[in-house]
């Protein structure tokens, strides 16, 4: 969890508010919190009752950002912060490597094959791991479409249990 501005360590209040904002659920993947998705970039207290939250989108055009912003505002309002502004930051770009281990486990449990780890850009070329069916666990799966219910997912089918499933694409 990243809190505070890059130059100063987060205060205990900022850490507490970051926990509250980070516990908000993703509107499209309601089993994941924003902290587990890795989209919460920072919480800054700019004055009494005045807080700025930095959020990064998974995809530039992700329509869930507006719902996330509203949900964060409501969560912090409920915590007694009247003035909440949520700003979108693009840099550094979000990567599926920002999804936490717990987040990956929950995705699989929800029936979505989690993204494979990519490692640092420019590093050694990772092995291409098979994508495992979240229903039966078979690695014998095939790509049906590069884009599925949302831009961040691909549609696959398991050759073992014949069930189609979504795969969170590496980004």
């Amino acid at each position: 969890m990243v809190t505070g501005s890059p130059t100063t360590a987060p205060t205990p209040l900022e850490e507490e508010l970051a926990r509250i904002a980070g516990a908000v659920l993703d509107p499209e993947l309601p089993v994941l919190t924003l902290a587990e998705l890795g989209v919460l970039r920072g919480v800054h207290v700019h004055g009494p009752g005045r807080v700025e939250v930095e959020l990064t989108p998974t995809y530039t055009g992700c329509p869930a950002v507006e719902a996330m912003s509203t949900d964060i505002e409501n969560a912090l309002h409920d915590h007694g912060i009247p003035d909440v502004s949520v700003v979108t930051v693009l840099s550094p770009a979000w990567s599926t490597d920002d999804i936490s281990e717990e987040g990956r486990r929950k995705l699989a449990e929800f029936g979505i094959a989690p993204p494979r780890p990519q490692g640092p850009a420019g590093g050694p070329i990772p092995l291409t791991l098979a994508i495992r069916c979240p229903h039966c666990g078979s690695t014998d799966t095939e790509l049906l479409s590069r884009f599925s219910s949302t831009a961040c997912k691909a549609l696959r089918r398991c050759a073992a249990c014949r069930e189609p499933f979504d795969h969170f694409k590496e980004l």
Partner: peptide
């Protein structure tokens, strides 16, 4: 679905 998703990426940009 694929073309709509590509369009959405472009719209975001």
């Amino acid at each position: 679905v694929a073309l709509a998703n590509i369009a959405l990426d472009l719209l975001g940009q």
